[in-house]
């Protein structure tokens, strides 16, 4: 239970920095603004009926929010967690920490928990406060979907905390941890998708994939990107079926690529269902932390 002492200490230390409070404020502001603009001031209003048909105000909210949360939550998680272990090594507090009977695995795990709380709590607080704003304007307040989206967003934060803590554990210096985490973010944001498109394209030339295979390969590789996995899972909360959500991964905003819809057909293999996408997302939580633990366990302080 040594990780518990580490997690508690870490969280206690982190909240003193006022980060938690500033972040909670930021998330409340962020989540509430589109809701308030849309529902109280009628910005970008659509007919009420259309909204209700799609599951009400929550669906619109998720649609509006997910692009922004997919960008913001990961970078904030990185800021919170990239220094989790490197900072302790550079300020010498790691010596104080490891003078006590803590296993190095438990130190990394405790850090993961502590920093996860620092991102997840403000996200959940932000959603709770925003929910209070939305309720009065609700024509069809789908609580289940709303809570689902809140939990999913918190999970995205935790996944990026995991990636960052893993990199921090493996890095030799604060600088390396920063370059590693920010590089990973930019990779997911700007490099991954063009690359997967290119790879799928190449598969056609190299092994003569069919048009359907080409799209399936591209979809599969896209879903391995945690930011894309998050967005498509959010779409699953919006759309009637996982298929529609996956189709939305192609194309722009609300307008899917007709060629993709055509090629994907009506029935997707099981590896594209929601539970599998959740697993892909969770892999990003487990794998970097495991590698980070492995490297950290074997190094000299």
């Amino acid at each position: 239970m040594s990780w518990r002492a580490v997690a508690e200490k870490d969280f206690r230390d982190a909240i003193r920095s006022r980060w938690l409070w500033a972040l909670s404020g930021l998330f409340v502001l962020l989540f509430s603004t589109p809701g308030i603009l849309r529902f109280y001031f009628g910005v970008g209003d659509v007919e009420g009926q259309e909204a209700e048909a799609a599951g009400g105000i929550v669906v619109l909210f998720i649609h509006m929010m997910k692009e922004m949360t997919a960008l913001l939550v990961p970078i904030i998680a990185i800021v919170i967690a990239y220094a989790a272990l490197t900072r302790e090594r550079e300020t010498g507090t790691m010596k104080l920490l490891l003078s006590l009977p803590h296993d190095r695995y438990e130190v990394v795990f405790g850090k993961l928990l502590g920093r996860s709380a620092v991102i997840a709590i403000p996200i959940l607080v932000g959603f709770a406060v925003c929910g209070l704003f939305l309720l009065p304007a609700a024509t069809g307040f789908a609580v289940g979907r709303y809570v689902g989206f809140a939990v999913l967003t918190a999970l995205l934060g935790v996944v990026f905390v995991g990636i960052s803590v893993g990199i921090s554990a493996a890095a030799n210096s604060q600088r390396q941890a920063m370059v590693g985490t920010v590089g990973t973010y930019v990779g997911f944001l700007a490099v991954w998708n063009p690359l997967t498109g290119e790879l799928a394209e190449q598969s056609v030339d190299l092994v003569g994939s069919s048009e359907r295979s080409r799209y399936l390969i591209e979809l599969f590789l896209t879903l391995l990107n945690p930011m894309e996995a998050y967005k498509t899972l959010a779409d699953s909360l919006v759309f009637e079926s996982a298929l529609q959500a996956r189709q939305a991964a192609f194309g722009f905003f609300l307008f899917p690529d007709p060629a993709a819809i055509e090629a994907l057909g009506d029935d997707l293999p099981i590896v594209f269902t929601d539970p599998f996408v959740v697993v892909y997302l969770l892999l990003w939580l487990v794998v970097p932390i495991t590698i980070g633990m492995y490297v950290f366990e074997r190094r000299d302080l």
């Binding site: 580490v6 206690r12 230390d13 507090t93 010596k95």
Partner: peptide, 23 residues
């Protein structure tokens, strides 16, 4: 230890409490 640092945002009591929890 030699060349250690302290958690600058935690009080002396919280440091010792952390050691007590850890042990």
């Amino acid at each position: 230890p030699e060349g250690f640092g302290v958690y600058s945002r935690l009080s002396a009591r919280e440091h010792v409490e952390f050691a007590i929890d850890s042990k």
